[in-house]
């Protein structure tokens, strides 16, 4: 099952990346994050069939609950509360973004397959997906000038970390769980509180109003 499903899941993660990076609206992006979160939640079950089943189930449930439900809900609520414009304020156009997504995904597969420093029992597919996701997450933070969009970028980056952490899910499940909790605490509670603060002071969520401290 592992051999059959893993490439497809990885491909789906990459596609969700492309969807997120090329959407022009916050709600679409959040939808992409939901899809990605669900795909990631399935990963531990596929990667480690039969090993430490209870932990993998816990991971799956936590993943679905946090990445698939709580986090997106909370984000949606935030953007509804502050009633901001739903544009993501791209610094770089969508077509180039899509291009970038494709290129980095290809590069990730190429790099992971080329460097042979990883131990044998590691699957190149999910690592490539992790790398590609990291590229997208960083890109969203850099190239989108909307605060919520930057948070989404952070979440995507977190997903990359989560994917990577699955490598040690069997030996150190605690670490993976901590990574998921990071989503919840860091990404959502803190950052959305920050968003509320920003909105109450600036009446906008564009990063443009947050560029006064220079030098």
């Amino acid at each position: 099952m592992k051999e059959n499903l893993l490439p497809w899941i990885s491909l789906a993660i990459v596609l969700s990346n492309l969807y997120i990076v090329s959407s022009s609206r916050l709600t679409y992006q959040i939808r992409g994050v939901v899809v990605q979160g669900l795909l990631l939640s399935i990963l531990p079950l596929i990667l480690f069939p039969g090993e430490d089943f209870i932990h993998m189930i816990i991971l799956f449930v936590m993943g679905v609950a946090i990445k698939g439900i709580i986090v997106p809900k909370y984000l949606l609520k935030t953007i509804q509360d502050v009633r901001v414009e739903r544009e993501v304020h791209p610094l770089i156009g969508y077509s180039f973004s899509l291009f970038y997504g494709v290129i980095t995904a290809g590069l990730s597969f190429f790099l992971i397959n080329r460097i042979d420093i990883l131990p044998d029992n590691f699957s190149p597919f999910h690592l490539s997906a992790a790398l590609a996701t990291a590229f997208i997450g960083i890109y969203l933070i850099i190239a989108r000038r909307n605060v919520v969009s930057q948070i989404i970028g952070y979440l995507v980056l977190e997903n990359a970390g989560f994917t990577l952490s699955l490598s040690v899910a069997v030996s150190q499940p605690l670490f993976v769980e901590m990574g998921i909790l990071l989503d919840l605490v860091g990404g959502i509670f803190i950052m959305t509180i920050a968003v509320n603060h920003i909105y109450s002071e600036h009446e906008s969520l564009s990063v443009k109003s947050l560029e006064r401290l220079i030098q």
Binding site: Q150, E211, R212
Partner: peptide
């Protein structure tokens, strides 16, 4: 230059 994107 004040842009958080650059910093990242």
């Amino acid at each position: 230059n004040g842009r958080s994107g650059f910093y990242v």
